[in-house]
């Protein structure tokens, strides 16, 4: 029972990070109908920023979010403005972002070599006891940050003019144009926010995982699973989807084998894509 609870909780915590990655992807899809194949690379960049902030300047990885988020936001905005926004249609932007992914990953390879880098914080192995269950401290912190960021996003989307405009263009870009919203500017900002979210999750993962240039692909696929689970373009869906994936993986690796868990996630993904394209909870058809 304890084992079950233990893995359930760690699943939820990992799921929180997945949710953050997926939030970025789903926002971009919601507003621009673009599936950003380069999303994982922003995560990778976040990881490296945290790694270097720590090794060069002794900045704690969780604090380095303050650096990585704005930097990747800017990078996202620039990339959107000069590259992505110029593509002609859905299919092209899909392939275009795949090209972008290759460029970013291999630039990292060139700059930082293919070495696996581990960010070792002094409290990396500390655990917090909650009754019989122990939770690793970095994981707990990252989960708390996840919650804070999600609340922040929620507030932003529901209470600020810019956030409301983003939601409006996600729902109906024509209506948004009529309402006098500058759709292009909104798209640019959304792309930036999406990139920043990916990099934040990269920073959150940095103390737990090795950083390497092509790690993005792994998380891109995970983010797809989450987004499809929760419904393309849905913010709430991304949260629930993230938790579901985290818990499935965590329970699966305990009770089945790790390798096969990946397959289950993917098969689930495929089934939902095929039979419930609007996500597990969605109602709208595409």
């Amino acid at each position: 029972m304890d084992l079950f609870l233990q893995s359930l909780i760690s699943g939820i915590m990992t799921g929180g990070v997945y949710a953050i990655i997926a939030l970025g992807l789903t926002l971009i899809f919601g507003v621009m109908r673009i599936i950003n194949m380069a999303h994982g690379e922003f995560l990778m960049i976040g990881m490296y920023i945290s790694y270097f902030s720590y090794t060069l300047f002794h900045i704690d990885p969780f604090i380095s979010i303050v650096i990585s988020a704005p930097l990747t936001f800017l990078l996202g905005v620039v990339i959107y403005r000069f590259v992505v926004s110029r593509s002609q249609n859905e299919e092209n932007s899909l392939i275009l972002t795949a090209g972008l992914s290759l460029v970013l990953a291999n630039t990292a390879l060139l700059l930082w070599s293919p070495d696996y880098r581990h960010l070792k914080v002094p409290y990396g192995t500390e655990v917090v006891k909650l009754g019989n269950i122990s939770v690793s401290l970095p994981m707990l912190i990252s989960f708390l940050i996840t919650i804070a960021i999600t609340l922040l996003l929620y507030w932003f989307l529901n209470k600020t003019d810019l956030g409301l405009a983003i939601r409006a263009s996600a729902q109906e870009s024509e209506a948004a144009t009529v309402m006098g919203i500058n759709v292009k500017k909104i798209a640019m900002i959304t792309f930036g926010i999406g990139a920043a979210f990916a990099s934040i999750s990269g920073s959150l993962l940095a103390p737990a995982l090795y950083a390497y240039p092509t790690i993005g692909t792994l998380f891109l696929v995970k983010a797809f699973v989450v987004v499809v689970l929760g419904g393309m373009g849905s913010v709430e869906g991304a949260l629930i989807g993230g938790i579901i994936l985290g818990v499935t993986e965590s329970l699966g690796s305990v009770y089945i084998s790790t390798g096969m868990t990946d397959a289950f996630g993917l098969i689930l993904f495929l089934l939902i894509l095929l039979f419930r394209p609007s996500g597990l909870f969605g109602t709208a058809t595409r």
Partner: peptide, 21 residues
């Protein structure tokens, strides 16, 4: 560039999509 030659690959793809679709 060793393995990082894929940068050129990616850049070429982007240029082609944008300027000669």
């Amino acid at each position: 560039f060793d393995n990082a030659y894929l940068i050129v690959y990616g850049l070429l793809l982007i240029l082609v999509i944008l300027y000669m679709p």
